[in-house]
């Protein structure tokens, strides 16, 4: 097996007295799609946010490509502001609440980071942004402001805004949770198509069907640790009681959006 793209060891994070991550370790190979499930408060979002250092862990080690971080403040491998920015430029992240910038058009939203951060010439950045927008079928909306778009459209623009930086890894933090049910599918199809393209992805999700059909690995977070992990089969035949209970609870009130890799290949890709 080749060296992992991302490796995290013994990540710990507390907010005050509340220890949210109790020493979490994970290795991700290039091209893997890792789904993270778990109850709210289990630490799964904090873990995802640690990977691009939106939350700085109290301790733990991280290797991503040629970067090595040691999150103990006294360490000489503690990330500097410049190193944080360099890391984040190579790791894309999409949020539950889209967070498009309302004062910029859709096109400007997608171009802004490549122009400012990668110093990409405006013409090239425009072409790239237009190509990405046509991939998601929103080219004709390029001069619209985000407020004119539906939630699903905004979230798909947020995804290509991250892709415009040509990230090596994409993080998705409950990206469909804020969407109206009928808009969830279009976002999942886009994510499936990214997976089909070989993008390395980590996603925190409540879409069990999506996790089952698209991911290469599933992690179940419980009380700050990875309580169970393995192939998506663990969603059908969980071993631990905690995962059994969790799945029982959420499958009861979820019909589930069935999206497969095939959808991604045949869909809007």
């Amino acid at each position: 097996m080749s060296a992992p793209l991302l490796s995290l060891r013994e990540i710990r994070k507390s907010f005050g007295d509340n220890e949210v991550l109790k020493g979490v370790s994970l290795e991700v190979q290039a091209g893997e799609v890792v789904s993270i499930i778990g109850a709210s408060g289990s630490g799964k979002s904090t873990f995802l946010r640690s990977i691009n250092a939106l939350e700085i862990p109290q301790s733990g080690f991280m290797d991503f490509e040629d970067t090595h971080f040691d999150f103990r403040t006294e360490s000489r491998f503690f990330p500097s502001q410049t190193q944080l920015q360099a890391l984040r430029a190579r790791v894309g992240m999409v949020f539950q609440s889209y967070n498009l910038w309302p004062h910029m058009t859709v096109l400007e939203n997608v171009m802004h980071a490549p122009v400012k951060l990668l110093k990409m010439p405006r013409r090239e950045a425009t072409e790239q942004a237009e190509a990405l927008l046509s991939r998601i079928g929103l080219l004709e909306k390029r001069h619209s402001y985000p407020a004119r778009l539906s939630g699903g459209q905004q979230q798909r623009v947020a995804i290509v805004r991250a892709l415009a930086m040509k990230p090596r890894l994409m993080l998705f933090d409950e990206v469909t949770s804020a969407l109206d049910p009928e808009l969830v599918h279009e976002v999942l199809v886009l994510m499936a198509s990214l997976a089909a393209d070989g993008m390395t992805m980590l996603l925190v999700t409540h879409e069990i069907a999506f996790a089952r059909d698209v991911s290469s690995r599933v992690l179940f977070f419980d009380k700050g640790v990875i309580a169970e992990s393995g192939s998506p089969d663990i969603l059908r035949s969980p071993e631990s009681d905690r995962l059994k209970q969790f799945l029982h609870r959420i499958l009861h009130d979820q019909v589930g959006h069935s999206v497969s890799l095939e959808d991604g290949r045949g869909g809007q890709a």
Partner: peptide
């Protein structure tokens, strides 16, 4: 979230303030 999405793309806090937050 406006700040976070800019930071997550690799913008510095100063540039985030200048081009994302202050115009709004």
């Amino acid at each position: 979230g406006q700040t976070e999405s800019a930071l997550a793309l690799g913008f510095s806090p100063a540039e985030t303030m200048r081009s994302i937050i202050l115009p709004q």
